[in-house]
Design a protein around this nucleic acid. Structure first.
Lengths: 229, 229
DNA sequence: ACCTGAACACCGTTCAAGT
DNA sequence: ACCTGAACACCGTTCAAGT
């Protein structure tokens, strides 16, 4: 099951997969994805870059392990599973779906560039599968058929990842003084070339991403209610 | 307005922004984003890598110009604008929103790694602004208030980008023979650890991405209908 | 004005050799 | 068994110098 064989003859091994992933996530938070290089990670972990390849075949593998670790506990947000929906009655499926979606967003937001890491990988570890299984489970127990449940999972996850990608990109430092980019946008819009954007500019440039997220999530949940009749 | 000053004393300039972006998009289609380097692009365009920096301050700028070019015409999918909704009556706002969303997905799918390029940049050119303006316009004319229209734009775009990111990642070659990754997934799921995933496996592993996309889009549109009462 | 040539400061990855 | 040292084949970006 383990990649570098199990027992441990010889030395105790200064590196290991779990500690390296932890250090990589810390480094991600401090410096961002672009600054996360194998050499810098090796430094942080007290080894040479080449040594990392005993535990991760490739940098992609490391990023995948990071993504898997990031979403630990997201599945638990669905609440208790199985046997009906417990004492809360059956009605609350939409609140349970919302909780999982919010937990996913929170997990991605918990690390700098978290959404970029997640979107760029395809983790298939227990955290990823467990969270997908609980979301699908909530929907199936609520009466959705298999096809609807599976597609609703994709809709909710893809929206959440897409949203958080935007959110984290918008919160970037930008480094320099007056963002020439947003300035040009503002000017062009105010100049009248885009009447509808100009009318909605206050909302479009609002940084209340939670409100944006909740609006989209509500659309999906209302849509799901409509699907179920 | 132009970056490298306007007229053109001296030589005619072998490079120019438009041709370089076009070549970059061709190269993207042939080899993918990871293989799109400034040196390879310079080769394809018949110059040295350094020469590209007369037209693009940074590789990010080039990618942004590519993203802007990719979504040319997406805004037009909303159909004629202004003065009511024309002879088609006013009722079809949801179909017009759907057309824009489909056009955005199609534009991203039209280039290898298109969604990755788009998600990694923040274009603010006329194609991007025009498409956002038409989507918001359709919604405002349909009776949504400014806040709803702006947030609906984000919901639709973020879902579409998130979906297409997944779709293009799933369609990757994977290079090697038996995908150890999907194999492990399949085994774990079938082994019984994830009962709900196992029940929905046929749909989850379906490659009919259009059906997945249409399902999510329908949820958002049904949700919007519910918002408007 | 536009481009070349060459360099700077890095990358991910591999692999003999040490312990 | 685990790690180092050193190399290979690249990167993005800058900038004097040519034309």
């Amino acid at each position: 099951m383990n990649s570098p064989s199990s027992p441990a003859r010889g030395r105790p091994a200064r590196l290991d997969q779990a500690r390296t992933v932890k250090t990589a996530l810390d480094l991600l938070n401090e410096s961002g994805l672009d600054a996360l290089t194998m050499r810098r990670l090796a430094d942080a972990v007290g080894a040479q870059a080449g040594a990392l390849y005993r535990y991760f075949a490739t940098k992609q593998d490391l990023l995948t392990a990071m993504a898997e670790r990031m979403i630990e506990g997201v599945g638990a947000a669905a609440g208790p599973t199985g046997n009906g929906a417990g004492p809360t009655g059956d009605g609350d499926w939409s609140e349970r779906v919302a909780r999982v979606a919010r937990a996913l967003r929170a997990a991605l937001l918990a690390h700098r560039d978290g959404a970029r890491v997640y979107a760029g990988t395809h983790a298939t570890g227990p955290n990823t599968l467990g969270f997908a299984d609980s979301l699908v489970g909530v929907l199936r127990e609520a009466g959705f058929d298999d096809g609807e449940a599976a597609r609703a999972l994709y809709a909710v996850v893809n929206f959440t990842v897409g949203h958080t990608l935007e959110e984290q990109a918008a919160l970037q430092p930008e480094s320099e003084g007056p963002p020439a980019d947003a300035g040009g946008l503002h000017d062009a819009v105010v100049a009248g070339a885009y009447p509808h954007l100009s009318a909605t500019l206050p909302v479009l440039t609002s940084t209340d991403f939670t409100a944006h997220f909740e609006f989209g999530l509500r659309l999906l949940l209302d849509g799901l209610r409509a699907v179920r009749q």
